[in-house]
Each structure stands twice: as C-alpha cells, then as structure tokens.
C-alpha cells in the first residue's frame, strides 16, 4: 500500500505542482508514505499477527477502492508520469538508473544502522516476548510504531522510484494486495535479517517470473507457487540461510 501511495504522491505532485526533480520525487514519496504510516500506525500498533495483517489488508483495500474510482486520479487507468529531471535537466535512462542505485545504497546504509541499534534489536525482543519488553520499561507499541513508519518510508520511496522509472502509476499494479503478496514472497524467498538478502531475492524473483512467463505463459503462477512452497519446505530461513549453510559446509570441508 505504501509502495502505491509513494507512487501516487509522485504522480500528484507532478500533476498539481509540475514537480519532476528526482530528489524531490524521492523525498515526497518517502514523506507521504511516512506520514500515512505514522497516522495509521496509531491504530495498527495495537494489533498483532493475523489481525495486524487483516487490518493492513483492509486499509490497503480502502485505498485501492478510492484510487480505482477517483476520476481526478485517473481511476483504474492511473496516470502517466513524465521523465525525471535533475536541476532542470532531463535524466536519461541510465541517468535514472544511477540515481536509483544511489537511493538504494542510501536505504541500505540507513537500514543497516537501524538494525544495529538498540531499537533494531528490540524488534526480535518484541517478537520473542512482549511482556518482558514492557517490564523493561519500553513501550512495545511505540517500538512497533517506529518500525512501521520506517518500513512505510522505505516502501514509499520504492514506489516513488518505481513510478519514475515506469512512467506510469495505476491502482492494479501498485496498490492491490497481490502486489504486497509479491513483495512478501520476495522477502520469504530471500530470508530475514540481512540487508543484501532481499536484493538477491528480488533479482531472483524477477528472473524466475520472466523465464516462467516465457516458458509457460499459462503456468507461470504455478511455477512461482511451487518455488514458494519449495523454499518454505527446504529452506524456511530463505535463500540467505541456504547460502549460510553452504558456507558453513564449505568451511567444514576445508577444516
């Protein structure tokens, strides 16, 4: 949802303020998604597990319902986005690529710092034992809220960049819950807890999808679903843990 919201923020700023600067676009997307996350976080932070997921789903469907019917935002057709600029100059395809890489690196550095911090470690602590965290004197809800806003910002930034590179936003490919499903799939495939893992996962996902689509246009979902099941079964920690295991074995063999 935040992904789509970031993308739409970019589109709206272009429509109403003529804003096409890549930096501005990125920050608008991050800020818009962050604000939305901050607002909804007050409600969502009280929920856990399946209820959290369900309420998020409800919110995103509400947003989808609104966007798909809002005439001034292009309804289901969405809106097109003009090429990005930097200080007034138009960025070419490769220029955009460099900037996206730059933002991705920023995000990685930021996320790494977060995960190393006390607050980042608190996440594991909360999933292990909420009661204890409360008794240590920190509000579980606050920690969840902060984390939620951070991930909303990241998703929003990604959405903004996606909008800039695709040159198009529309509700079906940006806000619908199946998009979130894909993102979750990438996360599972790559494994949690390492920054580089999702990157690998995302590359692999696109790879599998493209090839599956080429090879079997009627059965690509089946291939993706099968991959998902296989990963869950054979390497529940995702590909990352699989690599770790390989590394471990290699070391063992060397010794």
């Amino acid at each position: 949802m935040y992904y789509g919201f970031g993308a739409y923020a970019v589109a709206m700023c272009q429509k109403y303020f003529g804003m096409t600067d890549i930096f501005l676009r990125f920050f608008i997307a991050v800020a818009a998604a962050g604000l939305l996350g901050f607002a909804l976080g007050f409600i969502l932070r009280r929920y856990r597990e399946i209820f959290f997921a369900m309420l998020s789903l409800a919110f995103s469907m509400v947003l989808y319902g609104l966007l798909a019917k809002a005439e001034f935002l292009g309804s289901t057709d969405g809106m097109s986005i003009s090429p990005s600029t930097i200080l007034g100059y138009e960025l070419g395809r490769f220029g955009l690529l460099y900037f996206i890489c730059f933002f991705v690196i920023c995000a990685i550095v930021f996320a790494q710092a977060y995960l190393r911090s006390s607050l980042g470690h608190l996440t594991t602590a909360i999933s292990d034992n909420e009661i204890r965290v409360e008794y240590l004197g920190y509000s579980v809800e606050k920690a969840i809220h902060i984390k939620y806003v951070i991930s909303a910002c990241l998703a929003g930034g990604a959405g903004g960049l996606m909008a800039a590179s695709l040159g198009q936003v529309d509700p079906d490919s940006m806000v619908l819950w199946s998009v979130s499903g894909e993102l979750v799939f990438v996360t599972i495939m790559s494994g949690l807890g390492n920054i580089l893992a999702p990157f690998m996962g995302a590359v692999l996902f696109e790879f599998i999808r493209t090839y599956a689509f080429e090879l079997a246009p009627q059965a690509w979902q089946m291939i993706i679903g099968g991959t998902l099941l296989a990963i869950i079964f054979f390497s529940p920690g995702g590909l990352w843990s699989f690599f770790q295991k390989l590394n471990f074995l290699r070391k063992k063999n060397n010794d």
Partner: peptide
C-alpha cells in the same frame, strides 16, 4: 504462522494455474 499462510498462498497459485 506467517509461513503457513504463505504456503497456502503458494498452493493457491498452483491450483489457479
């Protein structure tokens, strides 16, 4: 629990195709 939900998601994709 989330892993199980995802597994059923995978099954859903397979059965759809």
């Amino acid at each position: 629990i989330h892993l199980i939900v995802l597994a059923t998601f995978g099954i859903f994709w397979i059965l759809e195709d």
